[in-house]
Amino acid sequence: MNWTFFHKLGSPKWFYEISGKWLPWLAILAALMMATGLTWGLLFTPPDYLQGNSYRIIFLHVPTAFLASAIYVSMAIAGAVTLIWRIKLADMALKCMAPIGTSFCFLALLTGAIWGKPTWGTWWVWDARLTSMLILLFLYFGVIALRGAIRSATTQARACAILTLVGVVNIPIIKFSVQWWNTLHQGSTLKLTEKPSMAPEMLWPLLISIAAFYLFFTVVLIIRLRTEILDRERRTKWVRNAVEAGARS
């Protein structure tokens, strides 16, 4: 097993150079996919039998909800890598993923709430998924707040890594508890994000939107990571050269 590849992955300089080449293409692809998925879903799908046109919110709600959870799990993985192998790039990734994940979690909550109004008649409902998503938002806030409260960079890295790992262990427990709590108190039986048999006309734009959002996340993460690398490695010669060369994104 050639481990040099693994360790090369951890080199900020290598990552900066490789990502610089790929970024424009990824960005274009992400933009295209997102435009396709969202306009298709918004304009070119038939209205839902039960929910009418309000179901179109699904093309925003489901991708952001998936991503909010997926990003947190990625942060936990980055945290584990930070603690085990002390790879700086992993900590940088954790730091950069947090604001993206928070914004998606926030959007998922908002879209879920707005969707609830025409569907269930209220702006907020303590349904299991929305409540779990709210708690996930608290977890995100915690990581960001902890990073801001600690001064030393190495301590920040490892403290946030531990917090994220504890949080990720907590997530299944929370999901289970909230699900249990909700079935106990649930009056209505409609589930918000229930995807019964989705007609293919609706499924395809949804899948494209999900993939588009994942790609969008990757692109934004790469941009943030590149800036973070420049910031942390600013004393090195290669950063000076890259900046002087007037590197764009």
Binding site: L42, G52, N53, R56, I57, T111, W115, P118
Partner: peptide
Amino acid sequence: MGGHGIYVWPTYALGLLVILYNI
């Protein structure tokens, strides 16, 4: 949108805002 436009369009506007923030 059959009465639902008031929900769908602001939602998409919010979505656009979040996407723009992330860019």
